[in-house]
């Protein structure tokens, strides 16, 4: 009789890409929940809309590429991209913002570059940058956090704001209790510093509560928790996250020590904006990151440094998207020069 021929090894761990992706998605959910608690239903709606568009777009592209649709949809990578993008954009941004963003992320950044595993840039971040540059107004209109807001959008309001933009006045939801328009903590800090306020004075604003920003602090904490769970589960490795957070901490620490008045504190930087989201969910995207352990540390550190530099000295309040994209560009170079020392070779081979 004829026997089956296969290559060794004949057993595998049977780990699947889909499993990894699902774990990441699950661990991001607590952060999403906290975000919805503070900023209303908008984020959830954006996420759901994004996932729907992403799945449809991926199916369509796979069909065009004459590949198996089920395989592509089944590895949950499109869902994860959509989730991250949905979390990143302002909760009440019009529907077409997220749709355009998701389409760009899936079709152009992911599939036009070769599909899963072959894209150079992080799809969510590249789409975010596209939206930020193309629609700066919509992308910088954040909602005031619930405890400090005058009006919090309920479900109906959120839906109407998203799907019928212009029907209401979105600026209503930006008003703080004292009537001033609230922005994100980073935006607030940047504007304040440029106006000549010291960082301490900025931190006295109603957005902040004892130095920690209302709402954003807990959102970041939730993402941190999710990230630690992922580390435990083995869905990600520690090098990138640690590299990024450590570099950001050190850079902001140095800045803060040099001149506390014109620099935000490390705690401020670590827990505002999309820092934790980036550290555990965005920068750790395996396809676009460096591959060796040392390379990953360098990659993470590069992101951390860039985040700080752009936040402090650049034109945009939050810099994660740009930092991640720039580091993606450097990843092949890092891989080329940073290689683990093979058994039996002296270092340098």
């Amino acid at each position: 009789m004829a026997f089956k021929i296969t290559s060794s090894p004949h057993v595998t761990k049977n780990s699947q890409t889909a499993t990894v992706m699902q774990r990441v998605i699950l661990c991001a959910l607590p952060g999403l929940v906290v975000q919805c608690v503070y900023f209303g239903w908008g984020s959830l709606i954006q996420v759901l809309l994004a996932i729907a568009v992403a799945l449809v777009a991926e199916a369509a592209v796979m069909k065009l590429r004459k590949r198996a649709v089920g395989v592509a949809l089944g590895d949950y990578s499109a869902v994860l991209t959509a989730l991250l993008l949905g979390i990143a954009i302002p909760p009440l941004a019009p529907w077409w913002v997220i749709v355009i963003g998701t389409l760009f992320a899936i079709v152009v950044v992911k599939h036009l570059y070769g599909g899963l595993g072959n894209n150079l840039f992080n799809p969510a971040m590249a789409a975010y940058v596209l939206l930020l540059i193309a629609y700066p107004v919509q992308m910088t209109t954040w909602v005031a956090p619930a405890p400090a807001a005058q009006y919090s959008p309920d479900l109906l309001a959120s839906i109407s704001q998203i799907f019928l933009p212009g029907s209401g006045d979105i600026n209503l939801f930006r008003l703080g209790i004292d009537g001033t328009t609230m922005a994100t903590p980073l935006d607030t800090m940047k504007t304040g510093l440029s106006m000549g306020l010291t960082s301490t004075e900025v931190l006295a604003k109603p957005l902040f509560d004892e130095g920690l920003s209302i709402g954003w602090f807990w959102v970041n904490m939730a993402y941190l928790a999710g990230g630690l769970v992922m580390l435990k589960l083995g869905a990600i490795r520690w090098q990138i996250s640690t590299g990024m957070l450590a570099a950001l901490f050190i850079c902001s620490g140095i800045g803060f020590m040099m001149n506390p008045d014109t620099h935000g504190s490390p705690v401020f930087h670590l827990f505002s904006g999309a820092t934790m989201l980036a550290a555990f969910f965005i920068a750790t995207d395996p396809v676009t990151a460096a591959t060796s352990n040392r390379g990953r540390l360098i990659f993470g550190a590069l992101i951390g440094v860039l985040v700080y530099v752009i936040r402090q000295y650049g034109g945009y309040p939050d810099a994660v998207a740009f930092a991640v994209l720039l580091a993606n560009l450097c990843a092949p170079l890092i891989d080329y020069y940073v290689r683990p020392r093979t058994y039996g070779h002296r270092s340098g081979n």
Partner: peptide
């Protein structure tokens, strides 16, 4: 034994490099 699964594209997760006893890539 493991099921004969179809080869998918590499997602560059580098689990292989973590597992390699010769520290290869």
């Amino acid at each position: 034994m493991s099921v004969d699964a179809k080869e998918l594209s590499c997602i560059r997760c580098t689990e292989c490099a973590q597992a390699c006893p010769a520290s290869l890539l």
